[in-house]
Write a protein that binds this DNA or RNA. Structure first.
Length: 544
RNA sequence: GACCCGUUGGUGAAGUGGUUGAACACGCCACCCUCUCAAGGUGGUAUUCAUGGGUUCGAAACCCAUACGGGUUACCA
């Protein structure tokens, strides 16, 4: 068989050769250890936690080595593609604050970054393989391939198109020409030169040494529609785009022999591979991969709805990436992901259960470390889309809101009661008159029979002084209540039961409920300061 | 069926043949602090390292089997 003639027969209109593209996309000039990584999703819907994790890992390694992190859209399966899939991905990633050095809509010297726009490039590389005898057309129909598989199953053979089963290998030039003239649909397959019995070892960045059989499958390179399969597109693109490290799910591990063989046949160096274990979830006693379809915590919209900060998610993912990051993060208020050195070999080889509780804990820590201003800036976009009324109010009363957000925030151990953006309204609404007076909120507060509104009112009118420091305020408060048979401390109250009608805690509880409609609030002193005496009295007068 | 990968407390895990009678963190429990809550502090809980064999003076760590879980075996990625 004259393969050069075959290649010319199949690609009569080839515009450019492989060499042209190699010249067009020269090797990247980067620092020695710089990693070039990419995120390569298919536009089949929303980004989910699993792919976010993979992209995060890729991003982190490129970033810490001053490398390149780019986005490439793998849209070679047009059947699965959803409408506006590409836009969806790009907007999802924007929300997650993942930024790329290159990609569709961003630019870069190695584009186009959308595979469906790279058809001619793949053809040039197939042409190159074919003329050297490593690729050939195959005309089997779906039914014929199904039959083959059935036959192999019956005979307990390995399934697939390989060796003696790769019958299209034997087609003559004339036969192929005839098929083409009849416009028979066909695919281009790899003519594998590997033997399944030949084992080789390969070193994965995460999983370490792995022994694999050589590939002997004549896998499809170009599908009937002329677009490449994942395998071929991966090899061509990652070669031309200069990827140094391919980070992907470990379901790809068994395709490594195919990919390495393709790189070898093209005569180019293969990138390093990092196969990451899936994020999993426990369902009853069964552990399974986190699924887009069944698990709410898999889709990014869940976090956006809940108001879980993107940065908290990243911090959590970083702890999954290298557990030592967690120690670093918790021990240092100034800790940043970008300041930590992540390593491949600290990554887990088995699947990790995705733990929402831990994420929430980290989120609390993260939010507690923000300044009031930073927190304010972060919650604005959330409330703008989720609670416009609250949004407008905090925008209008920005200074006031900053004071509210600053409660117990500035000390050494800042308050940690916000796990989500939602929690902010949940824990501060009562500081706003709009809500306090709305629909008689106070009527819904649990005012107990034992409460003594007059006493509280008397206290605020006669004793409470806004200019007191916290210590003085508290002393005066205790002094005041002791005149009315309330114990100054809980201990005292418990030691001499029957002598008091209540204790300082009971009095504070009344203040809480009357003024804030809640049994649970942060430090009252700070809240009272923010509210101001005038508004305190107004609130008290409002209660019947 | 074949071929890969994995298996340390409820969870994430440290661990690379000898201060491991298994770190740290989340969770849970108790106590302390305390005007409530959230934190914080102290202590506790729980893994004998999937199982069975070996190798070794010594194994969670090395080897072999088995079991269980996961993946691949597409003109899906």
């Amino acid at each position: 068989m004259d393969y050069q003639a075959l290649a010319d027969l199949l690609f009569p209109h080839l515009k450019y050769t492989r060499e042209y593209y190699e010249e067009k996309y020269p090797k990247r000039v980067l620092k020695e250890k710089a990693m070039v990584t990419r995120f390569a999703p298919s536009p089949t819907g929303f980004i989910h936690m699993g792919s976010l994790y993979a992209s995060f890992v890729s991003y982190v390694f490129a970033n810490q080595t001053d490398g390149i992190f780019y986005l490439r859209i793998e849209d070679t399966d047009q059947k699965r593609e959803v409408e506006h899939g590409v836009e969806q991905i790009i907007s999802d990633l924007k929300k997650e604050d993942i930024s790329f050095d290159e990609g569709p809509g961003i630019g870069g010297a190695y584009g186009p970054y959308i595979q469906s726009e790279r058809k001619e490039i793949y053809e040039a590389f197939v042409y190159d393989l074919m003329k050297r005898g490593y690729a050939y057309p195959a005309f089997e129909t779906k039914e014929e391939l199904d039959d083959l598989r059935e036959k192999q199953e019956q005979q307990k053979q390995r399934l697939g198109y390989y060796g003696v089963y790769a019958t299209a290998r034997n087609l003559t030039y004339e036969e192929i020409k005839k098929h083409l003239e009849q416009k028979d649909p066909y695919v281009i397959r790899l003519k594998s030169n590997g033997k399944f019995e030949d084992k080789f070892t390969f070193k994965d960045c995460i999983k370490g040494k792995i022994e694999l059989p050589s590939n002997d499958m004549d896998i499809v390179l170009l599908k009937q529609d002329g677009l490449p399969t994942y395998h071929f597109a991966h090899v061509v693109d990652d070669y031309l785009m200069g990827t140094t490290h391919v980070v992907r799910g470990d379901e790809w591990l068994s395709s490594v022999p195919v990919h390495l063989q393709l790189f070898r046949l093209l005569g180019v160096k293969a990138p390093k591979y990092a196969h990451i274990a899936p994020l999993t979830k426990k369902e009853g006693t069964r552990i399974r991969k986190l699924s887009k379809r069944y698990d709410k915590e898999c889709s990014m919209s869940f976090y956006q709805e809940e108001g879980i900060p993107t940065n908290a998610i990243k911090i959590y993912l970083a702890t999954l990436l290298n557990t030592s990051f967690e120690d670093y993060y918790l021990s240092d208020r100034q800790a940043r992901i970008s300041n930590f050195s992540f390593t491949w070999n600290k990554m887990s080889v088995g699947g990790s259960l995705f733990d929402l509780t831990k994420l929430q804990f980290l989120s609390k820590t993260y939010l507690s470390r923000l300044s009031a201003e930073q927190l304010y800036e972060e919650i604005l976009p959330f409330y703008q889309t989720h609670d416009n009324f609250f949004y407008k109010m905090i925008t209008r009363e920005k200074e006031y809101t900053l004071r509210v957000l600053n409660v117990e925030r500035t000390g050494k151990k800042p308050r940690k009661d916000f796990a989500t953006y939602q929690d902010i309204k949940k824990h501060t609404w009562y500081m706003y008159d709009t809500y306090y007076y709305e629909d008689d909120t106070i009527k819904r507060a649990e005012i107990k029979e034992s409460y003594d509104k007059k006493l509280v009112q008397h206290y605020f009118e006669k004793v409470y002084d806004e200019n007191d420091t916290k210590d003085i305020w508290y002393e005066k408060l205790k002094e005041f209540i002791s005149q009315y048979d309330y114990a100054k401390t809980v201990k005292e109250y418990l030691q001499k039961p029957g002598e008091y009608i209540g204790h300082v805690g009971d009095f504070c509880e009344m203040i809480r409920v009357y003024l804030f409609c809640s049994l649970e609030t942060p430090d009252i002193y700070e809240l009272l300061q923010i509210l101001s005496k005038e508004r305190i009295l107004k609130r008290l007068n409002h209660i019947n």
